[in-house]
Amino acid sequence: MTTLPLPAWGVRPKRVLPGFGLTMGVTLAFLGIVVLLPTVALVLKGAEIGPARFWAIATAPRTFAALKLTLLAATMATIFNALYGLLMAWVLVRYDFPGRRLLDALVDIPFALPTAVAGLTLSALFSANGWYGAVLEPMGLPVVFTIWGVAIAMSFTSIPFVIRTVQPVLEDLDPQYEQAARTLGAGPFTCFVRVVLPAILPALVVGTTLSLARCLGEFGAIVFIAGNLPMKTEIASLLAVIRLEEYDYNGAAVIALVLLLIALALLAVSGLLQALATRHRGRAP
């Protein structure tokens, strides 16, 4: 840190403010100890395992089934969240009705509520003697101990993502464009697809990716409701924990690395799509 600014000269305007060395030091020290060092430990473990054994562990039937269930349930949950999120953002921004502000506040509950509480509550609600289960089970629609339970738990904990990313963009979108489209004879559906959707698409993509990433990583809410039957309703992160409890550190590390790679790939794809969408929008008049 030799670049501490000297007050008298003020070589570069950006460095006139004090604290570069201090804040850089604090930030790097914190990130190094709390985030980087542990991540390096995981990556080194992966390197120690080697590609051949890594592949063998990752594609073992039970691991593969867990990864498949996690991806499938997360996709189901994210599709629901994207639709529900669009609806909520639209309703909250475009309509005025009694209780709108309360509805707006309620949306944040899933983020504020600890996931273990969510899991406990959902599993009790959907079990045979819970309020929802008592209705659904006689209809032949069991939720607890099925993939539906996993998807519902994932969905609950990531509900706000799409709403909160689409909402501000929709607020900035001038209704005049829609009005113009309607005047020119577009129906409400055409108007939404051709005018509104392109404008909110980048935000929708970001919200959906965040939601998917969160679903893939969710643990607390799911373990209560899934029943955790191997090969059936066992999610990947739970299998990783089970491997740890069996002192199978390699098995746990492989699952963790696969989940980490998926999360990073999602981040990269989201960044790329966002950049593409912004560039596209920038070129339009």
Binding site: P38, T39, A41, L42, L216, G217, E218, F219, S237, A240, V241, L244, A252, A253, A256, L259, L260, A263
Partner: peptide, 8 residues
Amino acid sequence: SPIIAGIC
């Protein structure tokens, strides 16, 4: 995922 953090 926090689970990954824990494993790290």
